[in-house]
Amino acid sequence: MIRNFGNKLGLAWWAKIETENPNTTYWYGPFLTKKSLKDNMSSFMKDLTDEGSTEIKHSLVRCKKDEPLTF
């Protein structure tokens, strides 16, 4: 898949999302463009909120990311 190829090259866009409760870091991606990542963020953020996560912070990062995607 082209997204996976872009990720292997370090060209994919990821969201790094950190929550306080639970104290967790999530990686959401990969996406080919920053716009497509932004367009899909709201549903992921809503899922975290619906699950009871609080103090949610995020940053958009262009990088190569491997497993694990949750810490």
Rank of each mutant, 00 (worst) to 15 (best):
L69T: 09
Y28E: 10
E51F: 08
M41Q: 14
E18M: 04
N4A: 13
S42N: 11
W13L: 09
D50H: 10
K34Q: 15
M1L: 13
L48P: 00
A12V: 09
N21R: 15
F71G: 05
K35Y: 06
W14S: 14
M41A: 02
C63Q: 13
S53N: 15
W14Y: 14
T54G: 04
W27A: 02
K8V: 00
D50V: 14
S42M: 07
K34P: 05
K38T: 03
W14N: 12
F44I: 07
S42P: 02
R3I: 05
R3Q: 12
F5Y: 04
S43H: 09
W27M: 06
E18F: 11
D39M: 12
K46A: 14
K57Y: 09
S53D: 15
N21E: 02
T70E: 14
Y26W: 15
K64W: 06
D39A: 13
M41K: 13
M45T: 08
M1I: 08
L9R: 01
L9H: 01
R62C: 03
L11G: 01
Y28K: 07
P30L: 10
F5W: 03
S53M: 10
L69G: 00
N23Q: 10
A15N: 15
N23D: 11
F5E: 09
T54I: 13
N4V: 13
D66Y: 08
F31Y: 15
E67L: 09
T24C: 07
G29Q: 03
F5Q: 07
M41W: 01
R3H: 05
A15Y: 04
